[in-house]
Every structure is written in structure tokens, then in C-alpha cells.
Computed example of a mutant assay.
Amino acid sequence: MTAAAQKVLVIGGGFSGMSAAIMMARAGIEVDLVEIDEGWRSYGAGISLHGATLRVFQELGILEEFKAEGAATSGLIVRMPHNDQVIVEIPTPSMPGIDLPGNAAIMRPALAAILARATRAAGVNVRLGVTFETLTQDEDGVELTFTDGTSGRYDAVIGADGLFSKTRALLLPEAPEPAYVGQAVWRAELPTPEGLETLSMWLGKGVKVGINPVSPGRSYMFITEDCPEDIWVEDADLLPRMKALLDPFPSPMLSAVKEGLSEDSKLIYRPLKGMLLPQPWHVGRVLLIGDAVHATTPHLGAGACIGMEDGLVIAEELQRHATVAEAFAAHEARRWERCAMVVNNSGRLSEIEITGGDQGEHNEIMGRSMRALAEPI
């Protein structure tokens, strides 16, 4: 069966866009990808993953590269804030056919580089430092002009340009903006603390600390802080403020981590924002995927996962259907329940943390969500 689209443009070279581009190109579709950052850089420290994301890596053909550069461990451990004693262990299911445990992590720039290599190897025409200028469509295709003065016509366009999507703003000007959730996250890279073997968390009043191995001997730490206002933090303030957030945790592991933090620890601060747009996620022949339509907080470590899954699913549906409209409708039908679960459950976890809610509910949502993500896409 001939694919519904023979030539597709992907706007945005992040994890979602690259995943879509790779899978469409492998299916024989001619794919152009435009990315506004001429350096094609991925910013940030580590990224927590799980079995469902490893399944995506297997489909993309990058699992072996992940094994070489990332880390996979088993389970999530919640520890006492004063002595590191284990409070609860939450299983992280492994995926059938994948010989790795179900918790994983890698540095974001490392994962971006792996995906970039796979994107080029698949034959995608990558254009950096470029995005679209204008977009118009008719029954048969989409015409675009680009910021480098060129133009092109495509059978379909995939908008994968993230949380503050230019494509979404054009297609759906009345769509709500991403909303601040009342928490911010701090991240740092550091040596793996002695005795830490898998993802561990410490819960305090208004603060949650987590450490996840990202490679042999290295981990990244995240600190989720309740913060009523969406504020800006100057670079010079990152280190002292991050150390101050660890003061209420006399745990031996975290005390050693605090002592070792420095300006070289790749410190990052981000306010957390989320958004779940109602469907449809397409207008005509232009479809939005990833954070452009279902941006989530990191409480389940699943934002990148569901965005990359979007890329796999739209590539499949374009091959299964005779028209772009049918492919887009089938994609949205498959994606809504799963993406809504991640966004809504992550949001509920955030609410529980902010309000000092039931820790039992928090643990139950974590476990239930991990089991749901282990289900087929």
C-alpha cells in the first residue's frame, strides 16, 4: 500500500521530531527536517527514562547506542530524609524482548547526539538554523516559505517544535498557553553517591530530591521545589540556592552530594509548565505532536517517551492509510488516552506534593502509571 504522504516536512529537531523523521524516512517517505538552532543542541542535564522509552529506542534502532552511553537500573526507591533508610520500593517493569531493567537515564545531550546520528543515517534532509516563515495549505498539499529564503511543498507537515510551538500558534491561535504548575526543578550532574544503585528519592516539606544514574559512575540530581511564582534565577544564584534546598536533608548521601556541588556541576533551573490540548491536534494536513500538544511535568519521567511514541505512531499510520486525514485521525485516536494519562497523573503528583497530600496516593499513582506505560502503544 502506498503511504498517505510521499513527502513530509518535520518542524523541530527535538526528540519527537527526530523520532518521526527517522521512522518515516525508513518507510520510504521523503522527509525534510528544519531546526531553528543551527547547532542542533540539546540543553539540560540528565533525563529519566523507563521501560517504555527503552522500547521506543529499540524501535528506533538506537538501543545499543543507549546501552553504551546511558544507564539502566531496576526500581524506584523512596528513602528517609535523615538516614537514607528505604521507605518503599516501586517496581519499574522491564519490557518483553528488551534485556534491560525498567529504570534508565542518560544525559540529554548524549541522547540528542544519538538521535541526530540516526536521523541523518535514515536519509532525512536536515536543515539547521532554519524554520518556516509562512504556511498555507490546500486540499492537495502544504506550501511553506522558510527563513533562509527558500520554499517547498509537502503532502503533510509534522509540527514538533515544542512547548512554545510556532506551528501551534499559527494553526490554533486561540489555544491556551502552557501553564505554570507551581513547582520548579533544579538539576545537576555529579558522581554517583556511594551505595546508590538505582533511582532514589527523598521527600521533604515543599522539596523532593532525586538522584538517577546516567552512566557508569555518574548520576544526575533533580530537586523539585514548590514555588508559588514563576521566577527567574540568575546563574550566580544557582549554586547557593541549590545547596540551600538540600539543607533540610541530613541524609549521609545528600550531605555528601551537597558538599561536592560546584559551578562545574552543570546546574540548571526550570519552572515547570504543562498543557494538554483537546483534540483534534491537526488542522488540514498539519499535525502537532509532542510537547506542542501534550507537555507534561517530569513527575513520571515520561514526557520524552510519549513524544517519541508520537513519532513512531504517525509514521505507522501514514503507511496504513490512503489519505493524510485518515492517518491523522487514527494517530490521534491511538494517542489521546495514553498522553492524557501521563499529563493528568503527572499533574496530580505535582498537586499532592504542593499540598502535602497523601503519600500513599502518590506511590499508588506512580506504580499504576508505570504499569500503564508498559502496555502496548
Rank of each mutant, 00 (worst) to 15 (best):
V209G: 01
L196T: 15
T198C: 15
G195I: 10
A184H: 02
P191Q: 09
A184K: 01
K205L: 10
P213L: 12
L199K: 04
P191T: 12
I211L: 14
V207T: 14
K208G: 13
E194F: 02
P191W: 04
V207C: 04
W186N: 03
W186F: 10
E197I: 04
G195F: 03
A184C: 12
L196P: 02
I211V: 15
V185R: 00
K208Y: 03
G204W: 07
K208V: 14
P191S: 13
V185P: 00
W186Q: 04
P191M: 04
G210K: 06
I211K: 00
G195P: 03
P193E: 10
V207G: 01
R187S: 08
K205G: 07
I211Q: 02
G182P: 01
V209I: 14
Q183K: 09
A184I: 04
A184N: 04
L203N: 10
L199P: 00
E189S: 11
V207A: 04
E189C: 14
L203D: 06
K205T: 14
G182I: 13
T192L: 15
L190K: 09
V185Y: 00
M201Q: 14
W186V: 03
V209K: 05
L203E: 12
G195K: 07
V185Q: 06
T198E: 10
L199G: 02
Q183E: 12
V209C: 09
N212A: 12
G210A: 15
K208N: 13
T192N: 08
A184R: 05
T192P: 00
S200T: 15
K208Q: 15
N212Q: 10
I211R: 02
G182Y: 05
G204K: 06
I211T: 07
G206D: 11
G206H: 11
S200N: 08
P193R: 09
G204L: 10
W186P: 00
A188C: 06
S200D: 03
P193I: 08
T198S: 13
G195W: 03
L196N: 12
G206I: 12
T192M: 13
P213Q: 11
L199Q: 12
E194R: 13
L196I: 15
I211W: 01
S200K: 04
R187Y: 05
E194L: 11
S200V: 05
A188K: 04
E194A: 14
K208I: 10
G210L: 15
G210V: 11
I211M: 07
E189L: 15
E194C: 03
T192E: 07
W202Y: 09
L199W: 13
K205W: 03
G210E: 11
L203R: 11
K208T: 15
L190E: 09
W186R: 06
M201L: 14
R187V: 02
P213Y: 10
T192S: 06
W202F: 07
A188Q: 07
R187L: 10
W202P: 00
V207P: 00
L203Y: 08
L199T: 12
E197C: 02
T192I: 04
L199V: 09
L203H: 11
G182M: 06
G195Q: 10
T192C: 09
P191Y: 02
A184E: 01
L203M: 15
L203P: 00
E194N: 10
A188L: 08
A184L: 02
R187W: 08
R187K: 11
G182R: 10
E197W: 02
N212S: 10
E189V: 15
Q183I: 05
L196Y: 02
E194P: 02
R187C: 03
L203A: 12
N212I: 14
A188M: 06
K205R: 14
G210P: 01
G182C: 07
